[in-house]
Every structure is written in structure tokens, then in C-alpha cells.
Computed example of a mutant assay.
Amino acid sequence: MPAVVPQEETTESIRDDQTVPIIAVGRRFHQGIELGADDAVEIMCARYTHLIGVLGSTDAGKTCLLSSLYLMATDGMLPASYQFAGSLTLQAFEDRARGLRKWEKGALPSQLVDHTVLAHPRQPSLLHLAIQEKTTNRRRVDLLLTDLPGEWTDNLVLRAAVAPSFEFLRRADGIIIVVDGKLLVSDRQFVEVQRVRQFIERLSTNVGIGRHVPFVLLVSKSDEIAMQMPAGAIELKEYIESLGYRARVVSAAAFSRTPKEVKSGTGVFEAIEILINSKSIAQDGSIHPATSPDRSFQRFKS
């Protein structure tokens, strides 16, 4: 969604009996809802911004991950060394978290948040969140997090022809692939592992994600599987590494159904921290510093 630019205001003043127009240029304001490519360019030109692709099928837990991160940040529940430093998409985060504030009889609803539905089905949306370290250097980290419908992932698994829609992720500083932990321990685990392998292969071969981009495989709903690490998750990590990428696996519980045993938000910020602290290693083995001046954002194809 493009930023709102107030209309220029025209006033008049009298100088030497002549009417001279004076133009007052208004400031740019974001509406607080999802950002688009133009907004991403504006933010990236101002400061280094980490673009993180949050990908996964319908019901995998992507939107819950984003909502949990937002609530942790705004409620002062980030790790002690970090603090919330603002967001240009507060309304968008609030829209996604609203369902979490409508619990009935103290129980989580079966559908935590609405599925992401974009106004334009061909365009991704981006959510902005800034955090700051409390250490002496007080590093500020700006994040642009993708929020794509699960159908995007499902379609890429089925058809390589939709790969151009993901090409903006070639600019990503990291990829989080959200996989439903319950599926990885169910009788569908082998089917799910093969489906995620196919998706990862598409990202590598058809989309062209560079080998310097680190991956996090986030096993969602881990509170419902006693925080065990499914064998399928380890297999997927090894597959990602076999393609030449660096990969980590994180067990996560965005909103725990057993909060006495597993704290809500477990693993959520860990996944983000892995990526923002990961150095970009090029194919030639050189290490790109975290303040690389090349902040161009490749436009996605419609």
C-alpha cells in the first residue's frame, strides 16, 4: 500500500502589489497498514533494512508468528537486550492480532487469526517492525516481514510458472519457512516433508534465491507436540544444506495452548535473531558486512 502524501497547500502573499503563490509541501505519512514495493524502497534508502521472507502453507502458522512477534515487542516481552523501536504498520499488526483478543471462556479460538487475503492477489504485502539493542552501541534493526497467503506457497509447489511472483525475495536477508509441527508427527509426515522439499527446491531453482541467504525452518505449534523435534524437520534442514544454504531449525509456540509448560512466543524472536545476526556469505566465500550500501529492491513481477 503506497504511503499517503498530503496534497500540496497553496497560499498567497502580497509582495510589491503582486500575488505570489507560496507552495507548502506536506510531509509523507504512512497509513499504518501493509506496505508495498514503493514503500520498501523508501525505507531501504533511509537505513539498512532486513527483508525477511516468512513462507509456508495455509494454516502453517505464519500470521500467528507475525502477531506473536508484534505483541512481544509492544508488550516489552522481547529478550532483555532488545526493545521495541516503532513500526510503520501498527494498524496492520493490530488487524492481525485482533482475533487474539477475542478469546471466549478463557480458551483460544480454533482459528486464531484470519487467513491473509490480499486486496491484489498478485502483490505481496510487507509489515515493518523496528527493534533496538540496549547495549552500548544501541544498534537499531529495521525489519520488513512478508505476509503472503498460504496459497502462494501451495501454488509454487504445484506450478513452477508462478515463481516470478517470488523473485522479490532474491533481495531477502533471510527466509523463514514455517512448517506445522503436528503434521510432521502425523500419519501425513512423509507427504508433508516431500511437499516442503519441493517448495524449497522451487525457491532455489525456479525463484533463484542466492546461496548466501540463510534459512530458518520454524516448526510451529511445537507446544502441541511436547516441543519434540520431528525427524522430518531434521531431514528438511539437511536437504536445505544439501542445496548449499545455511540452515537452522527452531521449535516455536507463537500462542501456546499449554502456557504452564511452554511459554507463548517461544522460538519466535529466536528465528528473527538468527537471521539479523547472520552474515551474508557470497558464493565466492567473501563475507558481506551487515551494512552493505547496496540496498536495491528488485521489483516483483505482476
Rank of each mutant, 00 (worst) to 15 (best):
L236N: 00
A172L: 04
L55H: 04
K102T: 08
G267D: 07
G208T: 03
I225R: 07
Y245N: 03
G76F: 10
K221F: 04
R257W: 05
R139M: 06
V113F: 02
D142Y: 05
F215H: 09
R248V: 14
V141D: 02
G61I: 01
Q194C: 12
V54W: 00
R47L: 10
E261M: 06
I274H: 12
L143A: 11
P2Y: 12
V250K: 02
N155G: 12
Y239V: 03
G232N: 08
A172I: 04
Y82C: 04
G265C: 05
K62H: 08
N137G: 02
D142V: 04
C64F: 05
G174F: 08
T146G: 07
M72R: 09
S286A: 14
R96P: 00
R257L: 09
T258K: 10
R138K: 13
T10K: 13
E8G: 04
S204D: 15
M229W: 04
K301N: 05
L65P: 02
G36R: 01
A163V: 03
A85C: 11
D294C: 07
E34P: 00
A46M: 14
L112P: 01
N137M: 13
D154I: 05
A40Y: 01
D142H: 11
S292G: 11
A271C: 09
I276E: 04
R27F: 07
Q228A: 14
K263P: 01
M229F: 08
F166A: 00
R47I: 07
A254R: 04
L108Q: 09
T146R: 03
V213W: 03
A160R: 11
R140W: 05
L108E: 02
G53T: 01
S222R: 06
E94Q: 11
E224C: 10
R171L: 00
N277H: 15
R28H: 09
R211Y: 06
T205N: 12
W152T: 01
V25N: 06
